[in-house]
């Protein structure tokens, strides 16, 4: 049960955005910009970074919904999402994406855990400044979203089909502030 009185018909971040639309507006614009705006990283790869960090933070709502969105965006390569959650080192992804996921995993622990050798490894694998910047900011942002969603004890669905629906919406229309439910 949520720690505060949230709209009962909505799960996770959606209930929080309706509870406090003033902050919800900026949070939705931020995630839309980070995951759908201009970036050298594909939308699918950015969703994967969000999924991986949310998984490490053990935030069921965020990781299941972003995993579903990433599967939609990867299309016939959707299986690599689950490979990454099992072990990024052995997943069938590019060496560059592996180094970026390693940086994201360090950010999840704490900012200072990102070491020059992590950055060097990413550069050697072809990552540029913008790839690294966007990876760090996406990872940092999901350390916020995950804590916000779990810290207020929001509702999390146990039904896998709910996340498939969410993933389809996220991968097509993106992140749009939900309306106040009746």
């Amino acid at each position: 049960m949520p720690h505060i009185s949230l709209p009962p018909s909505l799960p996770g971040i959606r209930s929080l955005a309706v509870y406090r639309p003033e902050t919800g507006k900026y949070l939705y614009e931020l995630v839309q910009l980070l995951l759908r705006g201009a970036s050298p990283l594909s939308e699918a790869d950015r969703e994967l970074i969000a999924t991986y960090v949310s998984y490490l933070n053990n935030c069921q709502f965020c990781y299941q919904s972003h995993a579903a969105a990433a599967r939609c965006l990867y299309g016939n390569q959707e299986k690599l999402v689950d490979e990454v959650l099992k072990d990024p080192a052995t997943a069938s992804i590019s060496p560059k994406l592996k180094t970026l996921l390693r940086i994201a995993g360090k950010v999840q622990q704490l900012g200072k855990e990102v070491l020059p050798e992590d950055i060097d490894a990413a550069r050697k694998a072809g990552a540029n400044d913008r790839d690294i910047h966007d990876t760090v900011l996406i990872a940092a942002t999901f350390c916020m979203f995950n804590r916000y969603v779990d810290g207020l004890g929001t509702t999390t669905s146990e039904d896998v089909s709910d996340y498939i629906t969410m993933g389809e919406r996220m991968s097509t229309i993106g992140y749009v502030l939900p309306n106040q439910p009746l």
């Binding site: 406090r20 902050t23 940086i103 360090k106 950010v107 704490l110 900012g111 200072k112 990102v114 020059p116 690294i132 910047h133 760090v136 900011l137 990872a139 940092a140 942002t141 350390c143 916020m144 979203f145 995950n146 804590r147 916000y148 810290g151 207020l152």
Partner: peptide, 19 residues
């Protein structure tokens, strides 16, 4: 309080994660 605390878990990581 929860959102401010969560947001600073983002800002702090952004600032230090890029050194």
């Amino acid at each position: 309080t929860v959102l401010i605390a969560a947001a600073f878990c983002m800002y702090n990581r952004y600032v230090d994660g890029l050194a």
